[in-house]
Amino acid sequence: MDFLRPASWEEALAAKAEHPTAVPIAGGTDVMVEINFDHRRPEYLLDLNRVTELQDWHVGAETVQLGASVPYTKIMENLRAELPGLALASHTVASPQIRNRGGVGGNLGTASPAGDAHPALLAADCEVEVESQARGTRLIPIDAFYTGVKRNALEPDELIKSVHIKKADGPQQYSKVGTRNAMVIAVCAFGIALHPETRTVRTGIGSAAPTPIRAKAAEEFLNAALEEGGFWDNGKIITPSVAKQFAELCSGAANPIDDVRGTANYRKHAVGIMARRTLGWTWESYRSGKGRGAEGAA
C-alpha cells in the first residue's frame, strides 16, 4: 500500500490521474473501517486532508458551494439557514467525533444508499462538481449521480471537489429511522424541501432502494395538488387525504430489501410515515412563516 499526500488540489488530481485505483481518504470514516477490518487493501491511499479548499464553503446568491471535506459539524454550525435539510441530516450522522471528520464528499464517493446526506441533497437539489486532470471540471446533477449500489457517475481519474447546493427558499426537513436513539446507521431516511419560488416540492429517500432516490411520482402528485388547491398562496393546512396520498406514493417509490437492519416492509412503511410527518412540519413552517424549517429539531 502506498500513501499519497498531495499538498494541493492540482497535486491530488495529478496523483489520481497517475493512479486511477487510488482510494481517496478524507474523514476516513468509511475507508479506515474497511482497512481496520481487512475488508479492503487499496494499492494507494490518496489523502485529501492537506487540500485546504476542500474544507471551505462559499455562500453565493443562489447556491452554496460546499467543499467535499467540510465536516458535518461545520455544516450544522454554519449552514443551518442556507442548507437546513442538510444541516438536519448532518446532525443524524453517527457521533460527534465522526461528524467532526466526515463530509458529504465521503457520502457521495461511497454512494452507499445508507449515506445520511443523500436524501437531503436530493431534496435540496444540487450539482456535484468533479474534476480530472485530463478533462477538467464537470458538474453532475445529483439526479444523475447515483448509478447503482455503491456506484456513482465518477470516472476513475476524477475526484469530488464540491457540491453546489441550492440555498433553501423554503422549509426543509429530514428524518431517519434507526433502532437506536443516537449513533446509528439508517434503516431508512427521508428528506423533503419546499421550493416556494418554483412552487415545487422535492424529496429524497435513503436506504430504501439500491441507490438514494427521489419519490418523483409523489412529488408530481403533491406539486399538482398544491397548485390546484392554491395552497402556496392561501397557506391552508394540507388536506389529510393529500398528505396521505403523498405518503403512500413515497412509500411506493421505495424498493427496499430485507437485511439485518430492517425488513423491506418496515422500510416502506416507515418511509410513508416520515414523508407524512416531514411534509406536515415543513408545510406548517411555510404557512406560519416561521422561517426555513430547521427549528424544532434541536
Binding site: G28, T29, M32, V33, I35, P96, Q97, I98, N100
Partner: peptide, 15 residues
Amino acid sequence: GVPVCSCLVAAGQAE
C-alpha cells in the same frame, strides 16, 4: 483541537 476517533485517522493523515 477537534475530538476525533483516532482509529479512523490514517497515521499518515496526522503528519
